[in-house]
């Protein structure tokens, strides 16, 4: 490719190349192929494998504390709940890096990744999830407001296409 960029060009070659560059730009300007997702109206459905917000199931947890031990960011911590002998994990989303090691090491599937990733907080303290708060379903705020889920599809012409479901 592009061997001739080193050859001394003349005015004609130059003009041809300028025209080719401008024509290519114009072709894309006029085409309707766009990769962008208009986020609050549309939200990408990330599917099963995505490493999003972590859901903890209290009924499955055996208090082995492996999740707290493996956490590379020290986001996961064991909490003692009042009136309970066992310790349960809580998570600090100020620190979490979503590496998913805690999910992978959990021997009883008490921790799971969800596809939810678009949570925002007003206060830093809200990002700390003690066990009682950690044991709740995640809801995407955009989806709750009625955003239409779209699916990412690979396309030879556009690269990525987002198809409404």
């Amino acid at each position: 490719m592009a061997e001739d960029v080193y050859k001394p060009g003349n005015l004609l070659v130059s003009l041809k190349r300028h025209a080719a560059a401008i024509a290519t730009g114009l072709r894309y300007l006029l085409s309707t192929k766009r990769m962008t997702v208009r986020y609050p109206e549309f939200v990408i459905d990330l599917g099963e494998g995505y490493r999003g917000m972590i859901r903890w199931h209290r009924d499955r947890c055996i208090s082995c504390s492996l999740c707290a031990q493996i956490c590379p960011a020290a986001a996961m911590k064991m909490y003692k709940l009042p009136g309970e002998k066992k310790m349960y994990p809580g998570i600090n989303y100020q620190r979490c890096i979503f590496c998913g090691f805690c999910v992978d090491v959990c021997p009883v599937f008490a921790l799971e990744h969800t596809p939810v990733h678009d949570i925002s907080y007003e206060e830093l303290d809200e990002m700390i999830y003690v066990p009682t708060k950690f044991d709740t379903e995640w809801v995407s705020p955009a989806a709750k407001e009625g955003a239409r889920p779209v699916k990412v599809v690979f396309d030879e012409e556009v690269g990525l296409r987002h198809e409404p479901q």
């Binding site: 490719m1 001739d4 060009g9 130059s14 300028h18 080719a20 560059a21 290519t24 730009g25």
Partner: peptide, 11 residues
């Protein structure tokens, strides 16, 4: 290639 690499400005 058309818009960047062989673009006379970039050359």
């Amino acid at each position: 290639e058309r818009i960047f690499v062989k673009n006379p400005v970039i050359i």
